[in-house]
Design a protein around this nucleic acid. Structure first.
Lengths: 194, 194
DNA sequence: CGCCCAAACATTATCGATAATCTTCTCGAT
DNA sequence: ATCGAGAAGATTATCGATAATGTTTGGGCG
């Protein structure tokens, strides 16, 4: 997740086991999990390597995200409480703080936490599950590309100010349009990295 | 998947291992996979049980399905080839054949294969992944509730005739409306089971 | 000089056993 | 009779070792 092992790196079970001071079994279990979360790729009898995460895959992720996030937003907008808005404001301020320190990893966590609020409030567990997958892939992509991202950290943070304002206005169309532009904007910044 | 082990059933590793004539390791690996596919649920040191699949969960699944299927349909409609339509017709006829034999499991496979065509043609791997999850949950739910489903098998089969006709007309709005009614109709039939 | 085959090596997959943990049952005290 | 402590049993989690598989290296042959 943090990009510590780069894509393509082959994980040797016995090495990992001895580095953690455990036997093969727990390492195998962990690898099995990571395989199914899509972080590792494996071929039978050939071991596991860190999965690649291509730009084209991220394009697909963003298409899916736009689809479900606009839907969730529309549906949960009426239920949005003052408390929720306070929480979003709080996250926005944390984002600004972290942006100045150029801490990319902490920033993306906050950014995604901001959007998570809507999915969690909405209460559809299946959609939440899809969002979790999107979140994970996004985090990983940012971790991998890292250094190229933080040029615009403050710009992205400020963008969330606009989102909050739109939510406060309560006008559905302007909320959807603001979000659509936001999501596409972040994606556009990402795609320029490669 | 076939409902052989019913929800709540506890899987004992050593029993399964000896029944397959293998040791614990491969059984553990399989369980780990099934856990992450959501078919099993596990608590640490307390073993694994077959996951329950509630009606409320299926409601969520159908909400998600309607969202993404209408989207995919809209986007890939222009690319739909005569070949695709022939394939859909073929599946429709198989459905009718199987419906008469009251083979619920075979029927649901055909039904889902019908809808899979759109997702596979569309070419967004992330969305396809979401669909795979939906497919799996649906199959399982039908397997579990089984006997209650096949009263309407022929009705559901015939419904696909209408979908093909709508697709052939090429009119987006009528396609979307037909599909929306179809998806909600199948869901309505399901919810009546409980 | 390059190519194929076999041996040596590296690594994964599987095994059976032990350790840790949880559950059930028994027994004594209240 | 009820509750809790503790032993006995069942099961999972972990271990280290062996078997199976894949990869590399070195040597003989064309």
């Amino acid at each position: 997740m943090r990009g510590e092992y780069h894509p393509g790196y082959r994980l040797i079970i016995l090495d990992i086991a001895s580095s953690f001071g455990v036997s093969q079994a727990p390492v195998r279990e962990a690898i099995e999990r990571l395989k199914h979360e899509g972080l590792l790729k494996a071929e039978p009898n050939r071991g596991s390597t860190v999965a690649h995460l291509s730009l084209s895959e991220m394009r697909e992720v963003y298409e899916l995200r736009e689809l479900i996030e606009l839907y969730v937003l529309e549906r949960m907008l009426p239920q949005l409480s003052a408390e929720d808005l306070a929480k979003l404001n709080e996250l926005y301020e944390s984002m600004c703080r972290v942006a100045q320190k150029d801490d990319v990893f902490a920033f993306i966590e906050l950014d995604l936490a901001f959007h998570s609020l809507f999915y969690e409030r909405y209460g559809n567990g299946q959609i939440l599950g899809v969002w979790r997958g999107i979140k994970e892939k996004t985090t990983r992509f940012v971790s991998i590309t890292n250094q190229l991202y933080f040029a615009d950290l403050m710009v992205i943070a400020k963008g969330h100010r606009g989102l909050i304002d739109a939510l406060q206005s309560g006008d559905l169309d302007s909320v959807k349009e603001t979000y659509r532009r936001h999501i596409e904007g972040v994606w556009g910044r990402m795609r320029q990295m490669l």
